[in-house]
Design a binder for these strands. Structure first.
Lengths: 226, 226, 226, 226
DNA sequence: GATGAATGAGTGTTCATTCAT
DNA sequence: TATGAATGAACACTCATTCAT
């Protein structure tokens, strides 16, 4: 429950917190945009959830559209640099590396509100071409590069089959995208979520990604499914 | 069954009668809902694209929301029964069967406007819980059953590894969902589409799905990537 | 009291009068713009005075600004052509001609709501540069040309002194402008209007325009003031 | 007395103290009110132009409306007493006196920012009846009395024709009003100002005011136009 | 005194929906 | 049945005014 961390209700009104405002507003906006979509989110609601008046919102963001853009920009924690480093000095097998990447992704993106941004972008892309291109450039491209590097490492070290990189990247990406979308759409509406365990899902996807569905006549029997 | 299924050109021309109206409206609505989302689609636009007046639209659909629901309902491919049959009597290997299923899906759903409603549902699910549940019941469940049956066949015939069905289904589903969404969101905005070949993508995903990324020490070298 | 001429209150609502609407709205808008200025005039008021809802106004004018422009344009009855003709074939003395011009102006502009437009333009010119230039081109220029032609006739026929045309025009114009402004500003607020008789004012101004203030030693005594 | 009347440069620099604040604010406000009208002038702009914060403005003026009233009140030239004296002891002909009055007016009002409040009052009169009446009482009435006295002198001394004072006053006033308004509205928007020379205009108007347009058969030929 | 962050009533504009024709 | 003029509730955004600092 991210939003305003319940500031000590000192004065009932007219608090003066210039530094904190944009963050609080962005926070509230992220929640609402993800939950209801762009159009169904009213600026009054955003302001109210951030604990300020509508006017205050427009003090920090010149329009609803700019607020949206700021939410997307803000939420794209450029963790790619960090990850890139981590992965560069990873020691184990590339299979482990892939599993590690998935886990890290899940912890810092997939399971957090940041995943909502992806749903947002995929839902609203058509209405915000400008920001969609920004997203493509700043998020998608770097992300795909990261994946590509992992795959290349696997191939170069003889661990992975030689696959067409351009499409193999999507094999890694698709389960992530799918999970984020599911979580924020169908998954949030249908009470099947009960049985759905994201971590088991991820583990399962990585297994499949690595081993495929086909039986390997010689290889040891796969571990029993979870 | 996305749009109007090419009505038999009975009358020579310009003879589209009231029977066709709802279909034309649903057709126009699907396009616009997919392209711009529910909220950003104006009923005037829908009516205009269908070649009727705004009033006429409300003659057939009592509200924009009902129009949306009808779009989803009507756009749903009732082909699962047919497919189920086809697959039941499929003769070849389950790997071929899987590939065949992907191809069929691509031809009748993925590459057609029908793929749009998936994007629509995933985007608008939160705002239309009722119709989302309907979609889940009518489309997602049957679809997953179909996939599950294929996988089971593979396992039972000793072709596929024993995997946790509940999650393996998603391994098959994710690349499809991913492709449909990509097409209708980022893919429609970013001119990278140039290099992206859906059929190569699908082929690649099936390969990976079957063989995984890891080299099989004993197996013959994989075919060179396309 | 120009506005809606009290249409027979047939149906209480939802009348359908597409042809008449723009005129009625323009009419109401003229009244209010003149009375209260651009900013202080609310579109709701305009709509209400025209007997329609706010939404209907925007059916005919895309914005308040366009409504304003339309009011100005509409009210500029291009009577200049007509006047030009009339004056061209005027037979009497140029002094009579001038008096006739003033009278005509008063009857068709000065005393009517059209005079409000002048007040509007002079008040709001700075906020609507575009329409100000339009006004200058379409109204002021032609009007000055008309005056200039009268003065030239007087000079050419030896009736008028040889004066600098460029400024003499203003001597004719200023009393008109002054009267229109006075009427719509101070005159509308201060109950001195009681004693102020526009026609006597005009008559007096024409006299002065023609004879000047100085006594003419030889000329017959001026007529006693009204 | 428009702006701050050049306070004695006591302190070396940047020493403008709170005493000066109201004047600076009125100064800024006058400029903006004249340029854009009451409603289109934002208090932030006024404050910014005066070099203070918005809050400070409200420290000196309880509301925008009071600011407006103060602008009008303070901008009013209390010079009528002074002028009255000057004119009372004027020695020359009344024609010269009139010319002198025009010149003085131009120098201290017409050509200065003070002329702006006339435009302001005429534009906003309807929205501020109270201050309009104040203006009428403090400015218009005294001004007209002054003019009337000049005219009476002319008549009494046999220099001027016997005219209806109530309207003759406007013959003197109209060219002034016209000039001030023109300057601040159309004149400020249309680049015709090039050819327009206020002093030639005034000279011309006075000539016409005195001699009229009609030829005087016996009198010496008028001076050639400028 | 001075500031400027915060407010919220008010306004222009949109758009799904209605209904007289 | 079809139309499209009319509606009005809803919403984004503005800006004079307040007040804690």
């Amino acid at each position: 429950m991210p939003a305003t961390p319940t500031p000590p209700p000192a004065s009932p009104k007219r608090e003066r917190r210039k530094e904190a405002r944009p963050g609080e507003l962005l926070d509230a906006a992220l929640d609402l945009f993800v939950e209801k979509g762009y159009a169904a989110t009213k600026v009054d609601e955003v302001a109210a959830r951030a604990g300020v008046s509508k006017g205050t919102l427009f003090l920090y963001f010149p329009s609803k559209e700019e607020l949206f853009k700021a939410v997307v920009r803000e939420s794209i924690v450029g963790r790619f640099g960090e990850w890139s480093q981590e992965l560069a000095q990873f020691q184990g097998s590339t299979a482990d590396m892939l599993r590690y990447a998935y886990t890290t992704w899940w912890e810092s993106i997939g399971s957090t509100r940041a995943s909502g941004i992806t749903k947002l972008m995929l839902s609203e892309a058509g209405n915000f071409p400008e920001i969609t291109q920004f997203y493509q450039r700043e998020v998608i491209e770097p992300g795909q590069q990261l994946i590509r590097r992992v795959l290349l490492r696997g191939v170069e070290r003889g661990e992975f089959r030689t696959v067409n990189m351009d499409y193999a990247v999507y094999a890694v990406l698709a389960p992530m995208i799918f999970l984020m979308l599911w979580k924020h759409s169908i998954g949030a509406c249908v009470p099947d979520a009960l049985a759905f365990d994201p971590e088991a899902y991820i583990s399962s996807q990585v297994d499949n990604l690595l081993h495929g569905l086909l039986v390997r006549p010689d290889s040891p029997p796969p571990p029993p499914p979870v």
